[in-house]
Amino acid sequence: MKKAQNLVAIVSMLVLVCCGALLLNQKVSAAGEGKITGNVKFEGAAPHMRGIDMSKDPYCVKATSANPAHMETTLVGSSGGLENVVLYIDGWSGDATVEKNVPIFDQKNCMYVPHVLPLDVNQTFKVTTSDNTAHNIHPLPNPMVNVGWNQSQPPGAPPIEKSWKNPEAIRVQCNIHPWMQGWFVVVKGPYAVSDSSGNYTINNVPPGSYTVKAWHEPDQTQTQKVTVSAGQAATASFSFK
């Protein structure tokens, strides 16, 4: 009896907190905005993702001994969904920086988590390290578009906070562990990234007609036109080869 009361109290608290959060976040609370959802599929047999031999750094070998690392260039889920596809609105004319949160790009077990980090222009992100070995973070933008950098993060170093000025898909790598490869995909406006089943949802899209662009590494893109109505979800599904 007492237990049930506690449960009710906790649940109602949670609901209240969530409502508060929703009310405080204008973007979400704007009832007039819709969203775009969909699924990204990979056509054909999923390519074999080779295992990574990390033997040069015994720390990495130990960190991945339970769960061996493999390459992440094309991650296809069991249902054929394609992971790590970035979806965003081509030719977005609203505020360039829609997302205000500060995403984290972590270096964990000598791999990047996440492998693909979508970002708005000027959106701050944090690079952190969970490893007990030094990494250098070396994004390689086109020098005519963005200013690159190359900075190390030894164990215990504070997070590196950065942002990108212009839209671009930027490959990032660690030179100390050359297999560590990831992407910063810088776009304008709302974006989403497909999960392990290939599903995605772009939130906060005002009503209107849009071209949704899907990007997959290294430089594959597809587009689709959708119309978003107030409070509704438009769908756009893609399939990559």
Binding site: S55, K56, D57, T133, A134, N136, N150, S152, N175, I176
Partner: peptide
């Protein structure tokens, strides 16, 4: 050879 010189090795 650069910043990662100290950790450049193989078995």
């Amino acid at each position: 050879c650069g910043l990662g010189h100290y950790n450049m090795k193989a078995y």
